[in-house]
């Protein structure tokens, strides 16, 4: 058993003053959850470098129980969440999201989770997304990209890595040509959503996707969020079967 008493390293190391906030609002308050201390400090350094003072890392945790405690105490805007964590009910990141249900940020919005994992296994990805994470990126992501993803998640948008997009296309049968007739259909992607997903899978940034499809970035974000919702709510049986039966790499 991991002893949760051995110090959830809450490190209330907020930036010195509230004056740090660039732009219209204060810095995004961030909690890092990963069971590898080295990885946490690496991410911290990288984010400090790229974000200036737009990001404020207010806490770290290495287990499910520590993470829930730190998040409940700090009420951050965004949690950078590892998929595999010790403790809890053994479901890692999903347990953290479940344990933090109902926790709101200081501004009153919901705490958003961005899954950050070294695992490409489909069942891990699908589990943490369906638990409520707003996005999924792999640990090889570059610092600036990670910073951008955090900002995007803090704004309530969804973040799809190319790999997650590929997964979505496969799991929803969109690659094989299945297209929803109505946008609201939960079990299939609409033609536009499929286009957006394909471009993301091809390595396009949201901006490039927008340009390619002659739509606004905001519209791209809407499509991605809508796909995320389908991913979370769909009862499409292939989704789970796919996740179980096939690995992403």
């Amino acid at each position: 058993m991991t002893d949760s008493t051995s110090g959830p390293s809450a490190e209330p190391r907020r930036s010195a003053g509230p004056a740090g906030g660039a732009g219209s609002r204060g810095p995004i308050r961030l909690v890092l959850v990963d069971d590898h201390r080295m990885f946490r400090s690496g991410v911290r350094t990288e984010l400090d470098e790229v974000s200036g003072n737009r990001l404020d890392i207010v806490g770290e945790a290495g287990t499910v129980d520590q993470a829930v405690a730190v998040i409940r105490e700090q009420r951050p805007d965004v949690v950078l969440l590892d998929v595999h964590l010790p403790g809890g009910n053994g479901r890692g990141g999903s347990d953290v999201i479940a344990g933090c249900a109902g926790v709101n940020t200081e501004a009153g919005g919901p705490v958003r989770f961005l899954a950050l994992s070294v695992s490409d296994a489909a069942e891990d990805v699908i589990a943490v997304i369906r638990a409520g994470a707003r996005g999924y990126v792999t640990k090889t992501i570059s610092g600036p990209e990670l910073g951008g993803a955090i900002v995007r998640v803090a704004d309530g948008d969804a973040v799809f890595s190319p790999r997650l997009a590929g997964f979505v296309l496969d799991a929803f049968g969109a690659a094989a040509g299945e297209i929803a007739e109505v946008d609201e259909e939960l079990d299939r992607l609409s033609a536009r959503e499929r286009e957006v997903m394909r471009l993301i899978a091809r390595g396009y940034q949201y901006k490039e996707v927008a340009k390619e499809l002659f739509i606004s970035v905001k519209t791209v974000e809407t499509h991605v969020s809508s796909v995320l919702r389908k991913l979370q709510l769909s009862s499409r049986h292939e989704l789970t079967a796919w996740a179980m039966g096939r690995r992403l790499l």
């Binding site: 570059s142 190319p162 390595g203």
Partner: peptide, 16 residues
Amino acid sequence: PVSAYVEVGGRSVEAF
């Protein structure tokens, strides 16, 4: 970053 995307569809295979 370099990325490759291959989609095996019902009528064609597309690769980028």
